[in-house]
């Protein structure tokens, strides 16, 4: 892995969003030309796919999958994009049979997967319904990995203790809403 790749990955892990937008700006046009030339997609579709690639790269960094990246970030982004396009083409082809296939292959593993996805989706909706600054505080701490000092500084709180207290209140509110929702039966 090059120093540059490593520095980019570290910056994303440290919560930098800026670098993702820089990567988008740097490689977008090249990706769009490549996707149109090789996969006959429209400009808008190609841009949409490249946005998915950036999100995919972000997820790989957060999950640690990108830690052992052997290729350049550009190659990685293009390969994610290629997979997104190929999957979409494949999906189009099997769309008509999708429901039938799903029923046939409906074993416990799939059911558990869908239940889990459903749970996460509902929790996401409850989180999105939280107001400001709760949403921002929880995002900074849990998703972007900031410590409480950084959270306090960005939200404009006096110190980390104030931010910590607020984060606790926000989390409590969210967990109470989850308990009051239909999720209670599923989680118990």
């Amino acid at each position: 892995m090059t120093l540059e790749t490593s520095a980019i990955i570290e910056a994303i892990k440290a919560g930098s969003e800026k670098i993702l937008f820089q990567l988008y700006e740097t490689y977008r046009d090249e990706f769009v030309s490549w996707a149109i030339r090789n996969h006959q997609v429209s400009i808008e579709e190609a841009k949409d796919v490249f946005q998915e690639s950036i999100v995919g790269f972000y997820k790989s960094v957060k999950s640690g999958k990108a830690d052992a990246l052997e290729v350049t970030i550009k190659t990685y982004l293009f390969s994610i994009g290629k997979n997104v396009i190929l999957n979409a083409i494949k999906r189009r082809g099997i769309e008509a049979k999708a429901l039938e296939n799903f029923k046939e292959a409906h074993d416990n593993g799939i059911q558990e997967h869908y239940e889990h996805e459903h749970l996460v989706h509902l929790i996401k909706r409850l989180y999105q319904a939280l107001g400001s600054p709760c949403k921002e505080i929880l995002e900074m701490y849990y998703e972007r990995g900031f410590d409480m000092e950084s959270v306090a500084s960005r939200v404009g709180y006096k110190n980390a203790d104030v931010a910590k207290k607020k984060k606790y209140e926000c989390l409590k509110t969210l967990e109470e809403r989850i308990k009051m929702s239909r999720l209670r039966e599923i989680l118990n």
Binding site: V55, V120, H121, L122, K124, Y127, Q128, Y142, L171
Partner: peptide, 15 residues
Amino acid sequence: LVIEGIGQAYTEKLK
């Protein structure tokens, strides 16, 4: 699950 939900909301926002 909460952390996963926040993560999903963040990636949607990022998109």
